[in-house]
Amino acid sequence: MTPPVTTLAPEEAVQKLKYYQKGTFTVGNRLVAEEQRTVQASQARSNALTCGHRACQGCGEALGARYAIDAAMRATNNNLIAVNATGCLEVFTTPYPESSWQLPWLHSLFGNAAAVATGVAAAMRVKKRPEVRVIAQGGDGGTTDIGFQCLSGMFERNDDVLYICYDNEGYMNTGVQRSSATPPTARTATTPVLGPEPGNVFGTGKSVPKIAVAHNIPYVATATVADLHDLERKVIKAMSIHGARYIQINVPCPLGWGSASHDTIRLARLAVECGLYPIFEAEHGKVTQVRKIRRKVPVQDYLKLQRRFAHLFKGGHEDPRIARLQAICDANIAEYGLVDVTGRDG
């Protein structure tokens, strides 16, 4: 290896001190200032979702929920109430007689979390407790399907609620059925790998983040458990805003996706880096920021770690559906400008 030999002008030789060599993407770092570390790095984090919960090994939703709620707890100085839709998160945290939550928490039904949260927020307003803030949370089924009407109502009324959808792309609690957030070709119990179009069919499903943007609410963001800094920044930003807000967090599900429990964050990362899961934020109906792809990967890298896509890799030949999924990634990359054309990732 030839070390490059360059003549540097003295002023160039003195590089600006940057603290990103370590710690940019890690949870914390002993070398960076406290405020540059994540909430999760703190020994004083609230652990709003604490030990002893019954989520599966490597559960992305358990992780995403603690990330989000801890950040919101810090942002509100622990003046936070959470409303939870029925689903995995509810079931694994509150089976009688044990609760894993360490904040006031209310579960009503599968499809009404947004409306219940509206009621809690209204109560706080009428009780003159403006410091107490409200989060509604649920899975993608409880959000994009059965809870969609209440969600839209909460949005259009601009109720003072942050709704967080933990998107694991299916009804996992009931045994992995298809939701309107399930990606094309994915195998679920209701989209089996059978017939001429195995798995979930192309051309179905919906983007609730985009629909949320169309409501012109103050804040919409997508996030991922693979980027904690970005996730926490978005939650904290959302808590600084009043009115209806929506954050959708991609949370891989080892059980439903057929992935190794240790690959949860890795998969979330690959979902972003291949372009399948665009990470962006929007304010008042306009996309304002996009998280660029850092190390672009082909969609195969993401797919092949998951048994729900295993049928795409059988039979020796390249399944044409992979190209169709890649086309979705490419379209996302083009639509959101996920790859910097001038940057090294281009």
């Binding site: 409306a115 219940v116 209204a122 209440c150």
Partner: peptide
């Protein structure tokens, strides 16, 4: 008093559930 125009009866009672659980007369 918060008067909330909801989008369905399901939401109407759900909002009331949230409000009541949070200590408001709903």
């Amino acid at each position: 008093c918060e008067f909330i125009n909801v989008e369905s009866e399901f939401a109407a009672l759900s909002v009331a559930i949230g409000a009541s659980a949070a200590g408001a007369r709903a």
